[in-house]
């Protein structure tokens, strides 16, 4: 793995009035990493992610994503990232093909690319028979795999996944993570939040956020060693218990 840094934050902070949702977080993410961004509900994960993808202005601190500044260059950041939110955000009343065309088109792929990449995507997900069905009719697991594939169709430098596997069955989750590995092998950096601790074990490095602050950041193996724990779940519970903020 090369040591090229694709995300770099320094004391990044977001305040809503008196409430500090994200408090001076500083970290770096290397190219091709799968970076797990963990934390209990309300710890500030989604807020932090929204600052990084350019849809929320930080209150203070600095950050660079794909080499661009999160204050001034949000539009350049948007060209270089993919994003999949915890809410399913493809158009349910469009077919699989139409969704692919729309999002590929928005990211400036040529007609030829849309055709060939779309075809490849549908074949890979085994959705040939469903390609002309509206997305709303698909089961949740298929939708999430489709949303992820579309989020990386334009080969972004970084893909941000906000609880991508929420509510998905274990088999599909496993398949989903195979897709994440494949993307990472292809050089796409993966920035992922999750509540599933078995998924945390798959990450190259994880950070754990408690009450808006990053309290731990290392590879799963090192963290387990440091906190003398058998699994990431134990590490997480040990740290998250100290949280003072409510749900």
């Amino acid at each position: 793995m090369t040591n090229e840094i694709v995300i770099k934050t320094d004391k990044l902070t977001k305040k809503f009035g008196d409430f500090t949702a994200v408090n001076e977080i500083s970290f770096e993410v290397n190219k091709g990493e799968i970076f797990g961004f963990l934390g209990a509900n309300g710890a500030g994960k989604t807020t932090a992610m929204k600052m990084l993808i350019g849809i929320s202005k930080p209150s203070s601190g600095s950050a660079e994503v794909a080499g661009f500044d999160v204050y001034k260059q949000t539009e350049q950041i948007k060209k270089n990232i993919g994003y999949m939110s915890q809410r399913f955000s493809l158009y349910e009343d469009l077919t699989i093909k139409e969704n692919i065309q729309l999002f590929a088109g928005i990211y400036g792929l040529t007609d030829k690319e849309i055709e060939s990449k779309g075809e490849a995507l549908i074949t890979k997900l085994n959705l040939q028979n469903e390609s002309n069905k509206v997305v709303g009719q698909l089961p949740l697991g298929w939708k999430q795999k489709l949303a992820f594939s579309i989020a990386i169709l334009h080969r972004p430098k970084i893909v941000f996944l906000d609880e991508p596997t929420g509510g998905v069955d274990p088999v599909t989750r496993r398949q989903f993570w195979d897709m994440i590995y494949e993307a990472a092998d292809g050089g796409i950096t993966v920035f992922v939040t999750t509540h599933y601790m078995d998924e945390a074990e798959y990450c190259s490095r994880v950070s754990i956020m408690v009450d808006g602050v990053i309290t731990a950041l290392d590879s799963p193996a090192n963290l387990k060693k440091q906190y003398v724990a058998g699994s990431m779940e134990e590490v997480f519970i040990m740290l998250a218990r100290k949280a003072k903020r409510g749900e």
């Binding site: 993808i53 350019g54 955000s89 493809l90 928005i106």
Partner: peptide, 14 residues
């Protein structure tokens, strides 16, 4: 409401 606007907002659409 459905959240699709967020998906458009993180894209380079002007």
């Amino acid at each position: 409401e459905t959240g699709t606007i967020e998906q458009l907002n993180v894209s380079p659409i002007k």
